[in-house]
Design a protein around this nucleic acid. Structure first.
Lengths: 164, 164
DNA sequence: TATTGTTATACTCTATAACTATA
DNA sequence: TATAGTTATAGAGTATAACAATA
C-alpha cells in the first residue's frame, strides 16, 4: 500500500529503516550491558554529560514520570554514577550531577557504540555514507521542524549527541 | 575520529542514524501502546503471524530465556491474544498460536507504524527514498552476511517483515 | 494554594535456579 | 539422562495516587 514491495535483493524503504533501527538499538543495548547499563541508565548518564538538571527537568528530558526518575536516580546513585545535590536557590529542588565514574562509563559506552555504527557502514564507500547522512539529516530536520524544534539548537554546548 | 563532525545543517552519519533509530523506535512504542501493547508483546504477536512455534522456539526467536517467555505468553493469553496448543507429537511441547483478536491487533499496529514511517519520509522525493532504501539494504545485507545469514531467506513465506 | 520530590503500591519484563513431566 | 515447560524468587523499570516539605 505504502510503497513498492521488496525485490530480490532490496528491502522496501519502510522495512529497511525499521530493520536498521532495531539493529542499531540492539547494538546500543549490547554495548551498554557490557558496562552493566540499561538503555535508560545510559540515556540518564548521557543527558547529564552537559547538564545538571533538577529531578523535574530530568523527568521531562527523559520523558518519564517524576516518580520513575526517583527510582532511576536511586539506583544510579547507589552505584556511584550520579550524585544528588541540594539546590541553593530552592530548598525543594534536588539537582543531579554526573560523578567522574559515571562520566567515564558513559564516555566509554558512547565511543564503543559510535565505533560499532561506523563499522556497520564500512561496506559503503565514503560518498554513499555522506549521501545517507545528508538524506537522513533532511528527514530529521523536517520532523523536528514539524514540531517546532530546531534540531541544531538542542545539541549541548559541548556538542554531545542527543541520542543516548 | 570516526568521521567528519556535523556541520551547520547536517549531522554526522553516526548521529543521524542513531537519532533516526530512536525516532523510529519511539514511533513503534507509541503506536503499540495505543493498543496497550509493549514492544516485546508486539514482537511476540509479530513472529506468530506466520509461525506456530513451541515455547522453546519462541524463546530463540525473541532472544529471551524460556522462563521469560512463559510470563510473556501468560499475559498475552490472559488477554486473548494467543493460545497455547498442546503438541500432538511430543507431550512435553506446547505450541503457541495467534488468535483472531491477536492477529487483528498486530495488523492494525503494523499498518499504522508503516504509515508513520512513510509519513516521516514525505519530505523526500521518491528518488531519494529509493536511494536510502538501496543503501540501507546494502548495509543490512552485508551485516547479515557477516553472520552467515541470508537476509531474504529469513522472511516468512507470506513476506511479513522481520522487525516487529 | 501550588510545586518539588519521595513513598506506597501494582504491574510488566527479565533472568537464575529448582522443579515436574515426558522422552 | 536429557529436554520442554513452569514455578519461585529477585530485581529493574514504569505509572498512579497519596504524602511531606517548601514556596
Amino acid at each position: 500500500m505504502t510503497g513498492p514491495a521488496a525485490t530480490r535483493d532490496e528491502l522496501s524503504i519502510v522495512d529497511a529503516l525499521a530493520q536498521l533501527s532495531f539493529l542499531i538499538h540492539g547494538t546500543l543495548e549490547r554495548r551498554a550491558s557490557e558496562h552493566d547499563l540499561s538503555i535508560i541508565q545510559t540515556r540518564l548518564l548521557g543527558v547529564l554529560r552537559d547538564r545538571r538538571p533538577s529531578m523535574n527537568e530530568l523527568a521531562r528530558l527523559l520523558g518519564l514520570d517524576k516518580s520513575s526518575v526517583t527510582g532511576l536516580v536511586d539506583r544510579a546513585e547507589r552505584r556511584g554514577l550520579v550524585v544528588r545535590v541540594p539546590s541553593t536557590e530552592d530548598r525543594r529542588t534536588v539537582l543531579v550531577s554526573l560523578t567522574d565514574h559515571g562520566r567515564s562509563l558513559v564516555s566509554q559506552a558512547s565511543a564503543q557504540f559510535e565505533a560499532d555504527v561506523s563499522t556497520l557502514l564500512d561496506c559503503l564507500p565514503p560518498s554513499d555514507r555522506d549521501a545517507i547522512a545528508g538524506l537522513v539529516s533532511r528527514v530529521l530536520v523536517a520532523h523536528a521542524a514539524a514540531r517546532g524544534v530546531d534540531l541544531f539548537a538542542t545539541v549541548g554546548t559541548q556538542g554531545s549527541p542527543t541520542w543516548p
